[in-house]
């Protein structure tokens, strides 16, 4: 039996719920990670991933198996679009909320406190990045996608993705240099580049 993602999608298109369960178990953590990194909020990230998978079940024909596209690349696009819509809606209707704290904050020793502060600064800096830069950074750095795969997900050229990544890192470096996490020397290098 074809247990590849695309094979499972074929079975899902025929109404096979077991194949759907297998696909969800295989990929939910990965896409939850993407959603969380884009939204920074646990409840919203869960909503987005659940909505995306339920939509996949309800309308499996949206994925063209015979077109030769990889399921994960296509679904990255679905989830990132849904998360982006959620972000835009949040900006439009609500005041910005703070990001959820990351796990392991119970112990508050000095070392943990310092690490937590670093994490908070990092999260804040990433959150302040423009939408596309954050998405490019998340896909390439945290999800491990190649520039080419990210360009398909984001519907942009490879050069554009490289440029987004470079600008994202430059922006982060500037932001983190203000907080003293990175020295100004590195900042100068980025500007030179």
């Amino acid at each position: 039996m074809d247990d590849t993602d695309e094979g499972l999608m074929r079975r899902i298109q025929k109404g096979d719920h077991q194949a759907f369960s297998l696909l969800v178990r295989r990929h939910s953590a990965r896409f939850y990670g993407l959603s969380w990194r884009l939204l920074g909020n646990e409840a919203e990230a869960e909503d987005v991933v659940q909505d995306a998978f339920v939509k996949l079940w309800a309308q499996p024909d949206l994925f063209k198996v015979d077109a030769g596209a990889r399921f994960t690349t296509w679904f990255y696009r679905v989830v990132s679009n849904m998360a982006t819509d959620r972000l835009r809606g949040r900006k439009r209707w609500a005041a910005p909320e703070s990001m959820d704290m990351l796990p392991d904050q119970a112990k508050r020793s000095d070392q943990v406190l310092e690490e937590t502060e670093i994490q908070e600064m990092l999260e804040q800096a990433i959150r302040n990045l423009p939408e596309r830069q954050r998405l490019a950074l998340t896909l390439c750095f945290y999800e491990g996608l190649s520039i080419r795969e990210a360009s398909v997900v984001m519907d942009a050229g490879e050069k554009a993705i490289e440029s987004l990544l470079m600008r994202a890192k430059a922006g982060l470096r500037t932001e983190l240099a203000k907080g003293g996490l990175i020295g100004p020397r590195e900042e100068r290098h980025e500007r030179t580049a």
Partner: peptide, 10 residues
């Protein structure tokens, strides 16, 4: 620094 970003737990 980016690599030190915490893992996301579902």
């Amino acid at each position: 620094l980016l690599a030190r970003r915490a893992e996301v737990m579902m």
